[in-house]
């Protein structure tokens, strides 16, 4: 057990270190969410609109940055190994793949959390947007649940990126759709009914809903139920991930063609 923890920690440390090698990498978590927050805040602060909508701009930009770093960069870790020619070594080590991925995703999530810093600063200094109705304890729990959902999705998606290199392109193509379906910058309730149905099976939708509810006085506040749905769905994803990791291991060891996938 101790060796697994040490391996995961090494993977996390390596992920953090490679992320700061180039100063340009900071743009990913610093500027990208800031741009979306700025676009969102300008649109949401259109004269005549409700000021309570600004909370979607303040937190929405951070959520977008957080999601992008957590799942894109977490998943891209496996693509990087492939491009650098180290994918076979990763599989050949006695440490299970999921432990290495766990470290990578945890590193990405730590960086992703930083996305909230610039967007909150922009909201406060640029648009005088504050969160007067914020319930700190519920907010922190909701953020924790959201982190768990991102973590589980990243862990689940990563074997797909290992199995098929085109999977990353396709999932990347749906990146902004996730902003829509999970209600990162506006409520899911404004979407078409069929889209709300799709959104309902995505764990972050419920965590994001709880997160926004913890900053507002109006609207429903069934936070405990939403947290439970988010955690339950995330655990279901992990069950699926178990089979995917087994498939990756078999593909890597039996066919030996993983790097060509």
């Amino acid at each position: 057990m101790r060796s697994l923890v040490r391996a995961a920690f090494s993977s996390l440390r390596l992920t953090l270190r490679t992320r700061v090698v180039s100063g340009w990498m900071y743009l990913n978590w610093l500027v990208f969410p800031l741009i979306f927050a700025a676009a969102g805040l300008f649109v949401l602060s259109t004269p005549g609109g409700s000021s309570s909508r600004l909370v979607y701009g303040v937190l929405g930009g951070g959520l977008i940055g957080y999601w992008s770093v957590a799942y894109i960069d977490g998943g891209n870790g496996i693509q990087d190994e492939r491009w650098q020619g180290t994918l076979e070594q990763v599989f050949a080590t006695p440490t299970p793949l999921w432990v290495i991925i766990l470290g990578k995703v945890a590193g990405a999530i730590l960086f992703g959390l930083l996305s909230f810093v610039p967007t909150a600063a922009l909201g406060y200094f640029g648009f005088h947007a504050v969160l007067p109705q914020l319930d700190p304890s519920r907010f922190v729990i909701s953020l924790g649940v959201l982190t768990f959902t991102f973590f589980c999705i990243a862990i689940t998606l990563t074997p797909l990126f290992a199995l098929w290199r085109w999977a990353f392109s396709m999932v990347n193509g749906f990146e902004i759709a996730v902003y829509v379906l999970c209600g990162f910058m506006f409520p899911v309730a404004i979407l078409a009914p069929w889209a709300q149905g799709v959104a309902g099976v995505l764990a972050p939708t419920w965590a994001v809903r709880a997160l926004y509810a913890s900053t507002m006085a109006e609207g429903p506040h069934d936070l405990v139920a939403w947290w439970l749905v988010a955690v339950g769905l995330s655990l279901l994803y992990l069950c699926g991930a178990y089979f995917l990791y087994a498939l990756v291991e078999r593909r890597a060891r039996v066919s030996g063609q993983l790097a060509w996938a």
């Binding site: 909508r53 759709a177 910058m185 506006f186």
Partner: peptide
């Protein structure tokens, strides 16, 4: 992925955001 899905997603996101705000 990049020339059809991403554009559709981007338009969907900003149209929904704009419709919600304005």
């Amino acid at each position: 992925a990049y020339k059809i899905l991403l554009p559709v997603d981007q338009m969907l996101f900003f149209v929904e955001l704009g419709a919600y705000a304005t």
